[in-house]
Design a protein around this nucleic acid. Structure first.
Length: 269
DNA sequence: GACAACCTGACC
DNA sequence: GGTCAGGTTGTC
């Protein structure tokens, strides 16, 4: 589910609730969602939450024992803080229990995962070290040079986490609409000027989306379990057949890199 | 590139 | 019954 704005919203929320909390124990109903070395509850007792961080769409929970818990929510994962947990929702696979309050990892499709790694060795974790610069950190020249060298559809390049980290299907589509670029256009064929426009569009979309606390299309909720509102501002994503907000032409859908792309064939060239 | 795989659920 | 879904990885 979550892309950069959703993950950022969750981290901002959870930071407020979790930093300084002391771990009591873990409850892991579905051990298979954990990658290899999940520490025993007894070794985490008394360890505190130091800070939360984001790498692309990965959530990093830094602990005071020099370990980092990494969470990827994939399509339907949720990470929710519950003050007074009285029940365990369906599809809850991992629970971190504090001296007060609990952190629940819930994932209907079970694509997501939780990993524990040494905080000093984050850069050696293959799925983190391969990530490109963050969509909110990358500079204009770097953005342009990275995309100009790719001979594939701009939509596919935007979603490639090893080129730029953070964008997924919704924000790639919305950024391209805002920039007036058709998703199927080969990245290397776009002028510097058009890529600069795309850079600005992407930043603006992400900024507004974070302000709106992310997009809730079906499953996404924030760190308290509350939906976001940016879905109300989507201009092309999920609007196949509906009129373009700019020109009124019907929004089209085309599959690219195995994913639905939504665009206006009149406004986007 | 295209496609299947990993899963569950919603919708037609 | 089939299609589709905010992601990623591995296979032709």
């Amino acid at each position: 589910m979550p892309e950069l704005p959703e993950v950022q919203t969750i981290i901002d929320d959870l930071s407020k609730y979790l930093i300084g909390k002391s771990i009591d124990k873990l409850n892991i109903p579905t051990p298979s969602i954990c990658r290899k070395h999940v520490p025993k509850s007894s070794r985490l007792k008394g360890v505190k939450i130091q800070s939360l961080d984001r790498r692309g769409k990965h959530i990093l929970v830094n602990l005071t024992n020099n370990q980092t818990m990494i969470v990827h929510l994939k399509m339907t994962g949720k990470l929710i803080y519950i003050d007074n947990a009285t029940e365990i929702a369906k599809h809850t696979h991992f629970i971190m229990i504090f001296d007060s309050g609990e952190l629940h990892f819930n994932d209907i499709r079970r694509f997501g995962f939780i990993d524990f790694v040494n905080s000093d060795k984050l850069d050696k974790i293959p799925y983190l070290s391969g990530l490109g610069p963050d969509a909110l950190d990358i500079s204009t020249p770097e953005f342009i040079s990275k995309l100009r060298s790719r001979n594939k559809p701009i939509k596919s390049a935007l979603m490639d986490q090893n080129i730029i980290a953070g964008l997924g299907n919704i924000y790639a589509d919305e950024s391209l609409f805002s920039a007036g670029i058709r998703p199927s256009r080969i990245a290397s064929s776009l002028s510097r000027k058009r890529l600069e426009k795309l850079y600005q569009s992407m930043r603006e979309i992400l900024r507004i989306a974070i302000q709106a606390r992310g997009s809730s299309v079906s499953d996404y909720v924030d760190g308290s379990g509350i939906p976001g509102t940016f879905q109300n501002q989507h201009k092309v994503y999920g609007r196949t057949g509906l009129p373009c907000v700019k020109c009124g032409a019907a929004i089209k859908r085309q599959v690219l890199a195995g994913r639905s792309s939504h665009y206006c064939s009149r406004c986007q060239r």
